[in-house]
Nucleic acid binder design. Structure first.
Lengths: 342, 342
DNA sequence: CTGAAAGCGCTAACAC
DNA sequence: GTGTTAGCGCTTTCAG
């Protein structure tokens, strides 16, 4: 079962006794070709089942019309919303988007990024994996001047366009809200602190404590990878403390949910006995019971902006790099709303 | 800011005063090249920052070492688990996976598939969009003998390898379980019936009713796109019936959850007054309250099998097509477990 | 063990 | 308007 070799522009040319360049031009709607020959060419193309070979044209043009996007995990609402945003503007501009996930593994990220480079993507949009590395694979893009945009999880030492949300303010608001609700001992389920997103959220948390004259206790902040399992384990760790917290600011909604489940198992009431707030507004957060208070990030817009930035870089060869900071909103729901709790 | 043109094997060759073919061979670890020259070549390559141009090599080899996967929505646990399964075996075999989502839109699917074809993927794994079309874009793959594997949502009229779960049995089991729990009027929230997955689930539902001597009533089965909104709307439609159901078999977990939320709003207790079962086992189903009974599909394995099938086709040029039917399991949780309900 | 030469399919500068 | 030619970067006979 061998791959029939594909018809090429030369086959069309031969059939019509014209040159391949004419065919090429006609197929690109080059106005220099007469309508008559163009129509002939197109009809032959259809008849023999011609399909352009993008590989060849990309090689020739040194341009793939493709932008790569790599995220830690596609199955996270935040990331898939960003992807949709990127796709929306990229498709409109005639670009194809290829998606890959690193699973938060440094090695996989390196392999993916290398492969995207080797396939000559015109630009790369990335939110880096949790697992730290030296980022040599990304520096190549800078060196070769291939447009690169970071979003959400950025690499501070590489200069490039970056889009982040205001994690500091997000963390601050969450904590302030918990304080306002009358919670006294507020724990924090942090992500890996080598990532700026998570360290900023923690800084916000610390700032709010300090502004309210609450001393920070080291044991109340626990860092993990924020999987569902981490959430339950960390909740256990916090609640097993001699002096456990009465509220937890969780690094994401997944851990907020598994914390709630764990607290329920302990027979503790959320939000009456323990308040919980998440981050990122996964769709389930609105629907579970108690519904989860969380920080809403403009993910789709982030994707749009990322795509706009990269297209600008690709097409207008901009030279300056910006860091866009997008606003977040605190969405107060049941899990931290002691006042309204029945 | 112009793209510096990349170093090529010729640059290496010139520097070492050898031929490009030697360089090419050395870089592929061809044993015909002496270790000495190979080492020299490799060190020059590193020094000048050489990176192979996959585009060129793909063009020459008529092979991209890439397999494409297109799913309706990457942000569904089922699909992202399949993708992970595909990635796992494809990466091991040295293939790159490019992912795209159709958003259940026929036009987007067509554009994606065309673009993948144009980029000469070595094979395509696809679960088709809800929106129906004539599937000409997929028939091309058959015509050109490019390996094609369907999973979950398949196109019956195209012969290819297919992997599905036993939706019929799944639907049957769900319905039988609800009957066993003592529910008397069982509604069904169906997906688009032009897709076999959904029509099979419905057939299973009908079969179970009939086996138990329960007459089917047309109004109890409502078809939709199964978004979260559809779930609430359909639940309303069903509960507004003069003679509403006391149990609903929902087409997926998303609609199961939004149905539960809607029923709660009505003041109805799940599972005591109304039983609910979903399909696909989204991670949140286990964690919400009441936890949602659902059908567990072996998604990751489905991805692995799909990748194995396509790699076989690519590399061994198999000629026969199989349809693999994978088993499902009913996971009984709170939302339909009247007996254990408090 | 290494080199010369041809070509994958497409494009674009240059001619006419 | 259309053809000629050269070449994108890599691989692979064939020859030595």
């Amino acid at each position: 079962m061998q791959k029939k070799s594909e018809p090429t522009i030369h086959d069309i040319a031969r059939e019509l006794k014209i040159s391949a360049s004419t065919v090429s031009r006609a197929l690109q709607n080059n106005p220099r070709i007469s309508l008559k020959t163009r129509d002939k060419i197109i009809s032959v193309a259809e008849r023999i089942g011609y399909h352009p070979n993008t590989l060849a044209s990309n090689l020739r043009n040194k341009k793939s019309n493709t932008i790569g996007i790599v995220v830690p995990l596609i199955n996270r609402n935040f990331f898939s919303a960003v992807i949709s945003g990127v796709e929306e503007v990229a498709f409109k501009a005639g670009y194809t988007v290829v998606i890959s996930q690193s699973n938060d593994l440094a090695n996989k990220e390196i392999a993916i990024v290398r492969s995207m480079f080797a396939n000559r993507v015109d630009g790369l949009i990335i939110s880096i994996a949790m697992q730290p590395t030296n980022y040599e694979h990304l520096k190549i893009f800078r060196k070769k001047n291939i447009p690169l945009v970071f979003f959400d999880r950025v690499v501070p030492e590489i200069e490039a366009n970056k889009i982040v949300v205001d994690d500091f303010l997000g963390g601050f608001r969450v904590t302030q809200h918990l304080i306002d609700q009358g919670y006294k001992r507020i724990g924090h389920m942090a992500g890996p602190l080598n990532l700026q997103t998570y360290s900023d959220r923690k800084r916000g948390y610390l700032e709010a404590l300090s502004k309210n004259g609450i001393p920070f206790e080291e044991e109340l902040s626990v860092s993990s990878s924020l999987t569902s399992e981490d959430g339950a384990a960390t909740a256990k760790k916090l609640m097993d403390l001699p002096n456990p917290p009465d509220a937890i600011f969780c690094g994401n909604d997944t851990t907020a949910l598994s914390s709630i489940v764990y607290l329920k198992e302990l027979g503790l009431k959320v939000p009456q006995e323990v308040g919980i707030v998440g981050f990122s507004n996964e769709p389930f957060s609105r629907m579970v019971s108690p519904s989860i208070s969380t920080i809403v990030q403009p993910a789709f817009m982030m994707g749009q902006k990322a795509a706009e930035l990269i297209l600008n870089q690709i097409e207008q060869k901009e030279r300056t790099f910006r860091t866009l900071v997008l606003p977040t909103e605190l969405e107060i729901r049941e899990s931290s709303n002691r006042r309204l709790a029945p």
